[in-house]
Design a protein around this nucleic acid. Structure first.
Length: 958
RNA sequence: GCGGGGGUGGCCGAGUCAGGUCAAAGGCGCAGGGCUUAGGACCCUGUGGCGUAGGCCUGCGUGGGUUCAAAUCCCACCCCCCGCACCA
């Protein structure tokens, strides 16, 4: 093969086929070999795989390949997620001829028109993307055992049987409960409105308001509030005089609320019967009783009261709520307005704010102070919102209830709030209502409300004992990076019950109530166990009807006896036993990895379900969390049009280049950024490596091995060690940076230094290098491995092990001296601007080395100086200034370099530099003369030689 | 608001846990030179400022502090990104 002709298209095609044909990545139990079971969350099949998938999956694939080369029996399976709504939704939109989605499919996913037409069938669409994405995964070089492939939902009978077993099990264990739950709801679509289905109000979720009930004659006015603790400061009630209110029977009690409140209450499972409508103004002037304190307060008009928000009834706390103070002030300022409503201005004049909360940095009336400070004009001024937030925040965090708050006096506001709400509700003085703090509009343009769904099925993630188990697991798992562990702990604490069934979409019916479908995140928590079963299903040895409850109980949990299970399933005991043993071989999962966006949901659910169902020894061993893919510095999205599919970039740059670009983009939880320029650069770099290594293979033998070769191989060993350590920690970026760039730099320096490259040494470098790169650029490395005469596949070649015997500190120290001298010479050239004809180099005399090496051993600079002078005295050195300099120089050396110099010991600098003389002259283009400081007849017109210190020879240029 | 992660040179990004190897790895970009018919690739040099001798000054979000010594340790503050649920 010519060294110029590296066609990655041919090479990738060739090895891809070989891997598949020979089943290189198929893995079966081998009890004598240690195993590693690595899983990637199956992708959803509503579109093509993108570079984000590529990043997460390649990271795991690199680890899988690394471990495989280390001799582990590695299983890396793959499957597809069909469960959920979006595919069905997309199919519907296509049926309706939605241009937007059709254009996206055509332009981004590049789906042929005739296929798009068939996407009106969601199952067809899922099949299409499953097929396409599998091709891409293979093209990408993922080292997958494809015999275990499957997909989810009822369209895969065997998988459905598995989920049925899982959910029956969870229910039996008491982890599934029934309950009610508030959701954002579109009254038109009659379904929950998720974030992605909204025109307005992204991120808004139902908030729980307390309804404080004020009795007015024989009816109640329930005022909605986030601040029930301020009830002690209530001076009046606000209603909007122009809004329509209703008097209604609510669960047997008579309430007055704004008209839109009726629908809200009904959707929150309240029985509401409207008795009459009335205008807000009709309520003005009536007197109400405050709960707890039983004070009489009037109902007054305020324009800021929104009938759409809460109940349209607000209680006024002018001391602590800016809006209330503003509305009150507005009334005080315009008595004529009151008269218009037939109210006596004296009522308002008599109202004074009541201070009930002590707050740091504020006086009696924080609301008034903030209104004044921000110069809020009136209740219509937008600045009133800011004032409200400010007071709320400050009082919530630092406020304490004053002595006029009954038994709540002295409590922190944050505590009082909870307790008052709770106790008033219990006493029937308050109620509750969910509402949206901001407007939410459905895609269908309908304004959303909160609906409380009754009798939903929940996974009881709130269960403290369940949480405790997960925490136990978390504290002992391997976690990459370590910072993710804390994140998980927080998520576990924060997690509430999860609605685990839905009415629509693809999926597996809930076993005990088939009108529901198991929700998409809930059917994907322990399916890694199914990879073991799937192999037998795909071989035709297991059929869906064999997969009974007894079968899974036995295979996964060891429950029941072989005979019984054999009878129940109609399978041979041998087969059942084989599956059981295979399961026990591969389980538990050693590593599962994905983006950090899956931490608060999928990855945590994965842990929950494992602790619920499996015995401790089968709980997962490790999780890897990575960052979120960016594209050219921006978040990737189909709507933005910056969506990068793996298929496209693999076709353009080749899988090896794509893999390396992704792997060098980020590690740990940092967000990788896809830049096509970077990929182009990597492509060129790989081509260059290929060219070099293939040239080594065809190089005529030459040059004997000497110090330079020892240096090269010593460096190589350091690289081996560093790459291995990085890969163990999934530090892909670090590992590839060393494997691709640092080794390249070493080789370059070697080739520059030597006039006669040594083939043996270069072959050793090449053979090692190819294996270090193989997890990252497997296609190219297979090709190179075979060019170098390597045995079998590089994918299964032994990983280079660090050979300490080849680390040569002396060679490395010598080489660093040469580099130091060259740098110093250049520095002088730069500073003086001269073009010398000769450079004289003077190496330090022996006694200076004695001083230097002793100073180098010292533990601190102070110590180094002390030791240096001591040694110098013993040696009767005359120049304390140079001794000082040696000590300072020695103590400024640290880390790896210090270790190297200590281990190298004394260098014969004269010898080293003499052998590098030709090199220096060649590089610097002037004559180089090397002298010993203590030599005779030394040419040294400026007496420079006395400045020489170890590793820093003195220089004289002329 | 709560929680998680961050702020380093033109850019990306190591270094921070165990203070001195740090004007700060590596990559990209840029500039000069070499090679070449030319361009690309490749190789060399430079890339904070100053400097006719290998040095000095300034510097790692801001302001203090500890230390012989701080990007690294302590305190306070500012800023940025990402989650916050029925959704894959």
């Amino acid at each position: 093969m010519s060294i110029m002709a590296f066609d990655w298209r041919i090479v990738e095609e060739k090895w891809k086929e070989k891997w598949l044909r020979e089943g290189v990545f198929n893995a079966d139990p081998e009890p004598s070999r240690p195993k590693v079971f690595i899983t990637f969350p199956f992708p959803y099949v509503n579109g093509r795989l993108h570079v984000g998938h590529g990043f997460s999956a390649t990271r795991l694939d690199v680890y899988a390949r690394f471990k495989r080369m280390q001799g582990f029996n590695v299983l890396f399976p793959f499957a597809w997620h069909w469960t959920g709504e979006p595919i069905v939704g997309a199919a519907e939109r296509i049926s309706k001829g939605d241009e937007k989605i059709i254009r996206t499919l055509r332009l981004i996913d590049k789906v042929p028109q005739e296929e798009i037409e068939k996407f009106t069938d969601p199952v067809y669409m899922a099949r299409y993307y499953m097929r396409e994405n599998k091709k891409t995964a293979i093209d990408m070089g993922l080292s997958v055992d494809w015999r275990r492939e499957f997909h989810t939902s009822s369209y895969h009978a065997a998988f459905s049987k598995f989920v049925t077993w899982q959910f029956n099990r969870l229910k039996k264990l008491g982890y599934i409960v029934r309950g009610t739950h508030p959701v954002v709801w579109c009254p038109h679509c009659q379904s929950p409105t998720g974030d992605h289905d909204r025109l307005e109000g992204e991120g808004v979720s139902p908030e729980l308001y307390t309804l404080v009930k004020f009795k007015c004659n024989d009816v109640f006015l329930p005022a909605a509030t986030f601040r029930p603790e301020t009830i002690f400061g209530a001076t009046n009630i606000w209603v909007n005089p122009d809004a329509i209110y209703v008097e209604a029977e609510v669960d047997g009690e008579r309430w007055i609320v704004s008209k839109p409140t009726v629908l809200k209450l009904r959707e929150q499972l309240r029985r509401v019967e409207v008795l009459r409508e009335l205008k807000g103004s009709e309520l003005l002037g009536l007197m109400c009783k405050t709960p707890l304190t039983n004070q009489s307060i009037p109902i007054l008009p305020a324009k800021f009261v929104d009938p759409e928000s809460g109940t349209g009834v607000v209680f006024s706390v002018p001391a602590h709520a800016p809006y209330d103070w503003l509305a009150l002030r507005d009334l005080k300022r315009s008595p004529e307005l009151l008269k218009g409503y037939g109210l006596d201005p004296k009522i308002v004049e008599a109202i004074n704010p009541i201070s009930i909360i002590k707050v740091e940095g504020f006086g009696e009336y924080p609301a008034i102070e903030v209104v004044d400070r921000l110069e809020v004009k009136d209740q219509a001024d937008p600045k009133a919102d800011e004032a409200t937030r400010l007071v709320y925040k400050k009082e919530y965090h630092t406020g304490v209830m004053k002595e006029n708050c009954l038994s709540y006096s002295g409590l922190k506001v944050s505590e009082a709030k909870e307790r008052i709400a709770e106790e008033m509700k219990r006493a029937g003085l308050a109620d509750q209502l969910y509402d949206l703090p901001e407007k939410v509009v459905c895609r269908c343009t309908t304004k959303c409300i909160v609906k409380v769904l009754a009798d939903q099925w929940f996974l009881k993630y709130s269960d403290p004992e369940w949480k405790a188990k997960v925490k136990k697991l978390l504290s002992r798992m391997r976690m990459f990076p370590e910072a993710a562990r804390n994140y998980f702990f927080e998520v576990v604490d924060w997690l509430r019950d999860w609605a685990c069934a839905r009415r629509t979409g693809l999926g597996t019916p809930l076993p005990w109530d088939p009108s529901w479908i198991v929700e998409t995140l809930s059917d994907s928590t322990i399916y890694m166990a199914f990879y073991i079963v799937a192999k037998y299903v795909n071989m035709g040895l297991l059929r869906p009807e064999n997969l009974t409850e007894e079968f899974f109980d036995y295979v996964f949990l060891g429950e029941g006896s072989l005979e019984e299970v054999s009878k129940a399933t109609g399978l041979s005991p041998q087969l059942i036993d084989e599956v059981r043993r295979e399961f026990l071989y591969w389980y538990p999962v050693d590593l599962r990895g994905s983006g950090k966006d899956l931490v608060p949901n999928h990855l945590t659910f994965f842990l929950f379900h494992h602790t619920a169902i499996f015995p401790e020894e089968l709980w997962p061993k490790g999780i890897a969390v990575n960052g979120i893919m960016m594209v050219e510095g921006e978040k990737m999205s189909k709507s933005k049009g910056n969506f990068v599919t793996l298929k496209d970039v693999i076709e353009k740059y080749g899988a090896d280049a794509v893999r390396c670009t992704l792997m060098i983009a980020a590690e740990d939880m940092d967000d990788p950024d896809w830049r096509s320029d970077a990929c182009k650069d990597i492509r060129e770099k790989l081509d260059q490596v290929f060219k070099f290594i293939s040239s080594v293979a065809s190089m005529p033998s030459s040059g004997a091995a000497g110090p330079l070769e020892r240096w090269l191989l010593s460096r190589l060993q350091r690289r081996v060690k560093a790459v291995t350590e990085a890969l163990e920690q999934l530090k892909n970026r670090t590992a590839l940076e060393i494997a691709l760039f640092e080794i390249w730099n070493d080789v370059r320096w070697y080739l520059r230094r030597t006039q006669a490259p040594c083939k043996e040494a270069l072959l050793e470098v090449a053979r090692t290098w190819v294996r270090l790169l193989a997890p990252f650029a497997p296609f190219m490395c297979e090709e190179l491995w075979s060019l170098l005469g390597g045995e079998g596949f590089v994918s299964k070649a032994p990983w280079p092990s660090f050979n300490e015997a080849k680390v040569d500190y002396f060679a490395e120290a010598s080489e660093s001296l040469v580099q130091q001298v060259m740098d110093d010479l250049r520095e002088v050239l730069r500073a003086t601007g001269m073009a010398p004809s000769t450079a004289h180099i003077y190496v330090a005399s022996k006694w200076k080395w004695d001083v230097y090496l002793r100073a180098l051993e010292a533990s601190s600079p102070r110590e180094a100086i002390k030791v240096a002078h001591q040694v110098a005295k013993e040696l009767r050195a005359k120049d304390p200034k140079i001794v000082q300099k040696i000590a300072v120089e020695a103590s400024s050396v640290g880390g790896e370099r210090r270790e190297m110099r200590l281990k190298a010991g004394r260098l014969d600098e004269y010898e080293v530099l003499t052998s590098a003389k030709d090199f220096l002259e060649r590089e610097l283009k002037f004559e180089v003369k090397i002298w010993r400081e203590e030599g005779e007849k030394v040419y040294d017109p400026r007496g420079r030689r006395f400045n020489a210190i170890p590793y820093k020879p003195a220089l004289y240029l002329e």
